[in-house]
């Protein structure tokens, strides 16, 4: 059986940049917010209603499994693999866009219009989740260990829900794989580190498309891209050499 020689970075915890480097601090359970009793058995056996995978699934592994199938079908040809991966993802987006709108109870909505999407994107400025605050790094990330995309995604999912968007119209979108994104500084792209994945919150638009609330995509907080635009932007930074470095059944490594 073919094996994929990818560095998966299967860590006990997560980070968008560099890896996990939490300060050692013992929190008592009493300090935790008690929004719900946590039932581990129930939690870990639950199935994600969006993708049919277990809720605690390791997406690196899920990707590896899918990529293995694609590689076999493409006979290990890197260009074909890349095209197949892009097609797979664009097909997934189309499938999500074809979903029926859920019913919204009174005082809630099933989709957001342009103004609501932009207002929600900008709302982060008034919260501690906003990573462009000058005190942010020193307070939460003095070692530059986190990218906090997962934290901002957490924020936006809850903000959208509390403002009244139904849960079925709120999703997380993950791009999994080694990435080396850049941020423009005076129009010069500057590398911002290495990510193992990127995640953001997507919300359903009134036109049926899914839109991504991600202040990393547009630091000026003016643009809420469609998932397709967001995907096309970040996939440029995926390290394809690492992505499609494959050890074939004959033991030879083929990198594309």
């Amino acid at each position: 059986m073919q094996k994929i020689a990818m560095t998966l970075g299967i860590l006990a915890t997560i980070a968008c940049q560099h890896g996990f480097a939490a300060e050692s601090r013992r929190l008592t359970v009493g300090e935790m917010p008690s929004r719900a009793e946590f039932d581990a058995e129930e939690h870990y056996s639950r199935i994600d209603s969006t993708n049919g995978l277990p809720i605690g699934v390791d997406l690196y592994q899920a990707k590896t499994n899918e990529l293995g199938d694609i590689i076999r079908a493409s006979h290990g040809n890197g260009d074909r693999v890349e095209r197949a991966v892009i097609k797979r993802n664009l097909d997934l987006i189309a499938k999500m866009e074809a979903l029926e709108f859920p019913n919204a109870p009174k005082n809630r909505v099933s989709a957001l219009n342009l103004k609501q999407r932009i207002k929600t994107l900008q709302a982060i400025e008034a919260t501690t989740a906003y990573d462009d605050r000058t005190d942010f790094k020193s307070k939460y990330d003095p070692k530059g260990a986190f990218g906090f995309c997962f934290g901002r995604a957490y924020y936006y999912a809850n903000e959208a829900g509390l403002r009244g968007l139904v849960k079925e119209s709120i999703k997380k979108v993950f791009i999994v794989g080694k990435m080396e994104p850049h941020s423009p500084l005076f129009r010069i792209p500057i590398p911002v580190g290495t990510w193992q994945f990127h995640v953001a919150t997507a919300v359903r638009g009134t036109d049926g498309k899914w839109y991504v609330l991600d202040n990393h995509y547009d630091k000026s907080l003016k643009e809420v891209p469609t998932v397709t635009e967001w995907y096309n932007y970040y996939r440029k930074y995926l390290d394809s050499k690492e992505e499609y470095k494959i050890t074939m059944a004959d033991g030879k490594t083929r990198a594309h």
Binding site: I10, L59, K167, V173
Partner: peptide, 13 residues
Amino acid sequence: MFFTDPDKIGASS
């Protein structure tokens, strides 16, 4: 790329 329910926090967590 994966879509998930909003509950999921990180890729391998």
